[in-house]
Simulated scan of single mutants.
Amino acid sequence: MRFDNSRESDNVEDRRGGGGRSVGGRGIGIGTIVLALVAMYFGVDPSVVLNQATNGPAPSAVSRPAGPPANDAEAKFVRHVLAETEDTWAQIFKDNGKQYAAPTLVLFEGRTPTACGTGQSAMGPFYCPGDQKVYIDLAFYQELKSRYKAPGDFAQAYVIAHEVGHHVQNLLGISGKVQAARQRAGEREANALSVRLELQADCLAGVWAKNADAARNILEAGDVEEALAAASAIGDDNLQKQAQGYAVPDSFTHGSAEQRMRWFKRGMASGQLGVCNTFQSKAL
């Protein structure tokens, strides 16, 4: 991934080393993490789910050492990627007669307060519509590389672009409509709506990649394959098979590996917002 023509974003809040704590107690299964993510996205404090999973009132907390300096390479990378999303979505919104309001990206370690409840590293990167912030513990990138076998800088950029895709959904009013519909639905239908929301965010990540590359030539050989590997690795079917040996499609909340890759490729092939309407697509 090239940043020759890219600036660094000023919308990064670095909370690392500022009182972040790590979660102790029993291990947390991937199914619990998925539930916690869904809970947080729709405004429910995810610590309720995580605390129940650790079989105790509150997980033990262990102080972590001070985080790396604010100008470390990982933080600079995040600021470059976030700037790319800002410039790209500002132009797309302008072309569609709208004004883009950029989100803040928060770097944290262990746990951190959010408008959606307590954010925890165990949940992976997430977006909170309540404060319009993207949250990420950069330790996730090592997890993506070692545990999920999805290395590469563009795999990391895809993760950020997906969460910013949720911000775009929030600005366009899609998230609020989905939340209202989920509250009226049964569990199976609510899960299906979550899948459509997540696949749309994957598609929007593809739209971003297409437009950012066209404007500033950010992609290098192998970058798209890195993003697809990440999308596949965190598909619900692969995560469930890794955790329990089999997949239960009705319980999916983010989409299968094949779906996540396909919708990212669809957004990238077109570069147009209109191709990402997962809510009108009969076949996901």
Rank of each mutant, 00 (worst) to 15 (best):
D72H: 14
A73W: 07
A75H: 10
K76N: 14
V78T: 00
V78W: 00
R79H: 01
R79G: 00
H80G: 06
H80D: 04
V81L: 01
L82C: 01
A83W: 03
A83Q: 15
A83H: 09
E84N: 14
T85K: 08
E86A: 05
E86L: 04
E86N: 06
T88H: 10
W89M: 01
W89I: 01
A90Y: 11
I92A: 03
F93R: 05
D95C: 11
D95F: 11
D95A: 15
N96R: 15
K98G: 10
Q99V: 14
Q99H: 13
Y100C: 01
A101I: 13
A102H: 03
A102R: 05
T104L: 10
T104Y: 15
T104C: 10
L105Q: 03
V106L: 05
V106W: 04
L107A: 03
L107P: 09
L107N: 03
L107F: 13
F108G: 00
F108V: 00
E109R: 13
E109M: 10
T112M: 08
P113E: 01
P113W: 11
C116R: 05
G119N: 02
G119T: 01
Q120E: 15
S121M: 10
S121P: 07
A122F: 08
M123L: 14
M123I: 06
G124I: 00
G124C: 02
P125Q: 02
Y127E: 04
C128V: 00
K133H: 14
V134C: 08
V134E: 06
I136S: 07
I136D: 04
D137R: 07
L138C: 07
A139G: 13
A139P: 08
F140G: 00
Y141K: 01
Y141M: 01
Q142E: 12
E143V: 14
K145N: 14
K145Y: 09
R147Y: 02
R147H: 08
R147I: 09
R147S: 07
Y148E: 08
P151S: 13
P151T: 07
P151F: 11
G152H: 00
G152T: 00
D153P: 08
D153V: 10
F154H: 12
F154I: 07
A155Y: 06
Q156H: 12
A157P: 04
V159M: 00
I160L: 04
A161H: 08
H162P: 08
E163H: 01
E163V: 02
V164M: 05
V164Q: 02
V164L: 06
G165P: 02
G165K: 05
G165S: 12
H166W: 04
H166G: 05
H167T: 06
H167N: 06
N170E: 12
L171W: 08
I174L: 13
S175R: 14
S175Y: 13
G176M: 10
G176D: 11
K177M: 13
K177P: 04
V178Q: 02
V178C: 03
Q179R: 14
A181M: 09
A181E: 06
R182A: 11
Q183P: 09
Q183A: 14
A185M: 03
A185N: 03
E189M: 13
A190G: 04
A192D: 15
A192Q: 15
L193W: 10
L193S: 03
S194Y: 09
V195S: 03
R196S: 12
R196L: 11
R196H: 12
L199M: 14
Q200A: 11
A201N: 12
L204R: 06
L204K: 08
V207T: 11
V207N: 06
V207P: 09
W208H: 06
W208T: 03
